[in-house]
Design a protein around this nucleic acid. Structure first.
Length: 915
RNA sequence: GCCGGGAUGGCGAAAUUGGUAGACGCGACGGACUCAAAAUCCGUUGUCCGCAAGGACGUGGGGGUUCGAGUCCCCCUCCCGGUACCA
């Protein structure tokens, strides 16, 4: 028997799908739109089209969503299933720098190649809705959304974004004032600064991550823990720069709280909660001795304030200069006098701290610091406590200053030991406790003031409440909430991104580009190189600084403005693309409201599938933008993605030479269980398939060898969609054989005649067919595609050897398999005499009565061990089941005539006998 | 350290509520067809003892609950992912 070659079938059906617009879906208002059907919006995270093309690990999620999209069509849904390209970003620009090829050309070429590969997978996208974030027709609206952010402020009373015009109106009408001053009392520039400080998009001088090698600043999210750029692994320096920021921090609470309303993996929710990092606690003000000033600290443990025996400021804290003494106080301990004066000690320490890399700060956590010579007063104990500067306190969190409580904090304990500071326990550790700092629960101790106020005996939570009350009553602080989340640094100095649509006026005022002037198109420039340098003190100059002068200057109503030259980060385009698919031809609005209301429904995107690597970045940013649009009435749901699913990575064997470098896996040979590359031995490891491990497998090769339906089936059969799974090329033949066998079951090899009969199936086959429909349907609903395929294997195997396939079974087989192997099933569907695509066929139904077995195998256990299996009627009752069990010779051999102590009957599954 | 997920044959895995552990597939072994190979078809395949009938063991390790545990509870080990001087 020859292997059947499906390539002609696959080519034919892909051509017909395209010609007939099989996967196009209408919007409300379109002539073909059927409003009676429920909607299902199933979305893939769109790819960045790299020059390397796709490997077989990429489409695993796309195939999963495609199967579900096809299943939902067959169960009577209007299915929106689009695909596009996230095409701004560094690689195209770096390629441009190396070769002079404009990023647009590179991007268009890569997009075309990606689309070709994706189409070859037979994915049922509505390609008429495709988009690329780099299309001016698309980024016009990205810029428009930025303008909405710029023209909005966050109204704390409404806990929502509102148009900035409303704020200005309220100020002008006197309904609001600025720090007690009437709006009219403010100068024009004061008014402008105040409004600028309220906008959701604003310029601010902030400490940023400046990467000289990339010539741009980076978001916190783009910098690794050891202080290097996630892209390219270049050093990143902290320095203050004036940059565009988005006020995401105003949404911190809603971004946390609304996680409760969406069906996402718990791990992703946890990552977002941790990233936002909400902590409840208190700010406490410590008066500085001999000065009217106070140091404000944030603590989650205000109940331990009686144990605060010293204070620490971050090296960058603005109060450091003001409080550092010029001479050591007389009672300064000798080890604290690390220089001639406190000023010299602090200056030296700050210099050393600034020189330390992030890596050193985190790797060697030895506590270091310097005494300022100044003292603060603990407002509870009224004790004099020394003020130190130390780099274990970070300027970026809380207030950049802490009260140190060594008794209850491990870091403070370490520092106190190193510097000989007092340690007072204010929480009673359990008797068995042997450690140093005790961070657990327990009654408060040593926490009584001279005036009688006391926390002693209270647990941690009641003590917190009581102390916050005291702090508020006595003007030393209040209960507060602090977040780790910072505002989103939104400007980049790169070329290949959306220009920020802002104009700078001659007096420093800023206006957004009028909507009718959008998009602000990227101008042509000849030299794409970032002003890269290894000098951390070099200044970032936007690439658009090299744009023609005519582009940079804009005249509006007789005033000449200069354009903002920064561009947006890569995340911008992916923040709203799921909305544009709904209505991507619209040049009046970013999305038609009626179409948006229909497709986003009440849960937004019904299923969003992608890699877990976007757990915080893309998914947090997109939720933020969506909420702003929601507040402004532009979209109808509070959350964009009602259900999120993370597909598992595809792993593959990778090979390292003796230097540890990866060698191309496809060129490695195996001999006697050992591996060789160019004749030299290499070692095998396993890892995520991709360029970095040089272990990518090209889908083009797999399709050429086995056909695309085989590839689709194999990717689903490997294992659960959300698990990571190793790719094993050898295993593909299993699914290939399945399709070959299926074809031979349906089509006579010699005559090409259809082997389908009108005869009824045998009772066994009828039952198996109903059972298969039932289990595959439930597997579809649960996205258990691996077991669905296995059930179809079983049904197919049962057809081998039949003279002809009963049409009932043949029909069910083709419909059930169509979402997985659409090309073969379209062909069989046509040959079975159907008009039109199987895509439009109805999903088969089953009769619950037909799946019930009449005879089943009942297990008999004696003392918990299986001793016999008896065929019994499925309807058998307790007494008959027990009788049948006791009658078994094998069972009697183990009960040895002893009267059973206990018999548990669960017919028809099991009878359990205890002797 | 903390948070989340996981560990089942030679390999990928299955077992939806505690009820026949290993469905389905790969590989391996034996056979049919063939000059031969590929392809295809049939059979065997958790481990150990046994000619067999049969028996013992078996879901990372240890303990527990139960007539019965991969599944529930307690303790431990290892692997993967995230995060980390966050006060």
């Amino acid at each position: 028997m020859a292997r059947y070659d499906f390539s002609a079938i696959e080519e034919k059906w892909q051509r017909l799908w395209d010609a007939h617009g099989t996967y196009r879906v209408d919007n409300p208002g379109d002539p073909g739109f059927d409003a009676s059907k429920p909607k299902f919006y199933v979305l893939d995270m769109f790819p960045y089209p790299s020059g390397d093309g796709l490997h077989v690990g990429h489409p695993i999620g796309y195939i999963g969503t495609d199967i579900l999209a096809r299943y939902k069509r067959m169960t009577g849904h209007n299915v929106l299933h689009p695909m596009g390209f996230d095409a701004f970003g560094l690689p195209a620009e770096q390629y441009a720098v190396e070769t002079g090829t404009p990023p647009r050309e590179t991007t268009e070429k890569n997009v075309a190649n990606y689309e070709r590969q994706l189409r070859a997978f037979g994915l049922s996208y509505d390609w008429s809705r495709t988009l690329s974030t780099t299309d001016p027709d698309y980024y016009r609206w990205t810029q428009w959304i930025f303008i909405q952010l710029f023209e909005s402020w966050f109204d704390p009373d409404a806990n929502a974004a509102r148009p900035i015009a409303e704020l200005i109106g309220a100020l002008e009408r006197g309904e609001r004032s600025v720090d007690g001053r009437a709006w009219s009392e403010l100068s024009a520039s004061e008014q402008r600064d105040y409004i600028a400080g309220e906008r959701l998009a604003y310029l601010d001088e902030v400490p940023v991550n400046w990467c000289p090698a990339l010539g741009t600043v980076l978001a916190n999210e783009e910098v690794t823990a050891d202080g290097r750029s996630e892209r390219g692994d270049h050093p990143v320096y902290r320095r203050p720069l004036r940059q565009w920021m988005l006020r995401i921090t105003k949404y911190a609470d809603r971004l946390i709280d609304d996680l409760d309303n969406i069906d996402w993996p718990e791990s992703v929710k946890t990552m977002q909660r941790n990233w936002i990092g909400r902590s409840h606690g208190a700010t406490i003000e410590f008066p500085i001795e001999g000065s009217g000033q106070r140091i404000e600290v944030f603590t989650t443990r205000p109940d331990t304030v009686f144990g605060a025996t010293y204070m620490v400021l971050a090296p960058e804290h603005p109060l450091v200069d003001a409080i550092t003494e010029s001479e050591w106080p007389d009672d300064t301990k000798a080890p604290w006098r690390i220089a001639d004066t406190p000023l010299a000690a602090i200056a030296g320490y700050r210099q050393a701290a600034a020189r330390k890399s992030e890596l050193e700060r985190t790797e060697f956590r030895k506590k270091t610091g310097a005494f300022t010579g100044a003292y603060a007063i603990n407002p509870l104990t009224e004790a004099r406590i020394p003020i130190f500067v130390a780099d274990y306190v970070l300027m970026g969190y809380g207030t950049g200053a802490i009260m140190a409580v060594p008794g209850q904090d491990e870091r403070d304990w370490e520092f106190a030991e190193a510097f000989g500071l007092d340690i007072i326990r204010t929480v009673q550790p359990p008797d068995a406790f042997t450690g140093d700092a005790y961070v657990g629960q327990g009654p408060a101790i040593n926490s009584t003031r001279a005036d009688g106020f006391s926390l002693d005996g209270l647990g941690v939570e009641p003590a917190k409440e009581k102390i916050i009350e005291w702090l508020e009553a006595n003007g030393f602080g209040e209960g507060t909430i602090t977040y780790k989340l910072r505002d989103w640094l939104f400007s980049r100095q790169r070329y290949w991104g959306e220009p920020i649509p802002i104009l700078h006026g001659p007096d420093g005022e800023m206006i957004s580009v009028p909507a009718e002037r959008l998009p602000v198109e990227l101008p042509h420039i000849d030299d794409y190189r970032p002003r890269a340098s290894n000098d951390e003190n070099s200044d970032p100059t936007p690439a658009l600084d090299r744009a023609p002068i005519e582009w940079k200057h804009v005249e509006l109503d007789g005033t000449v403005y200069t354009r903002e030259l920064n561009t947006m980060p890569q995340w911008a385009g992916s923040c709203w693309y799921y909305l544009r698919y709904i209505d991507n031809g619209n040049d009046e609005r970013f999305v038609d409201s009626e179409a948006e209301a229909y497709w986003m429904g009440k849960n937004g995107v019904d299923l969003y599938v992608g890699g877990v690597e976007h757990a915080v970045l893309h998914l947090l940013y997109a939720r933020f933008w969506h909420k702003v649009l929601y507040d402004l009435g532009e979209v109808s749901t509070a959350e964009p993605f009602g259900r999120l699913f993370n597909q598992g990575y595809v792993l593959a064997a990778a090979y390292q030479d003796e230097r540890g470098f990866y060698v191309p896996a496809e060129d490695v040979e195996e001999r006697d269980g050992a591996f060789f590359y160019e004749g030299k031995p290499v070692t095998q490891t396993f890892g995520k398939m991709g360029k970095s491990l040089k272990n990518g497998v090209s889908p083009d090769d797999v399709i050429a060898a086995h056909g695309v339906d085989t590839m689709r089936l194999y990717e689903m059969f490997m294992g659960p969609l959300d698990a990571e799974k190793p790719w094993t090329t050898r295993d593909i033949v299993g699914v290939s054989r399945f399709l070959q066998r299926l074809w031979r079951n349906f089509v006579d090899e010699d005559t090409a005649a259809l082997r389908v009969t009108d005869d009824d199936p045998s009772p066994e086959l009828l039952r198996l067919t109903h059972q298969t429909i039932a289990t595959v349907t439930s597997d579809m609903e649960g996205m258990r595609f691996n077991t669905a395929v296995a059930r179809l294997f079983e049904l197919n195997n049962s057809l081998v050897g039949l003279d002809a396939i009963p049409v009932f079974t043949a029909d069910a087989m083709v419909r059930l398999l169509a979402p997985f192997a659409p090309h073969v099933c379209e062909e069989l569907w046509e040959r079975m005499g159907h008009e039109g695509s199987v895509t439009a066929a109805a999903w088969p139904t089953w009769d619950p009565e037909m799946i019930v077995e009449e005879q089943v195998t009942m297990v008999v256990q004696v003392n918990g061990k299986v001793r016999d299996r008896i065929d019994v009627p499925a309807s058998i009752g307790d007494d008959e089941a027990v009788a049948a069990a006791l009658a078994s010779e094998r069972v009697q051999a183990h009960t040895r005539g002893v009267e059973p102590k206990k018999i548990i009957a669960r017919p028809p599954k099991i009878v359990s006998i205890v002797v």
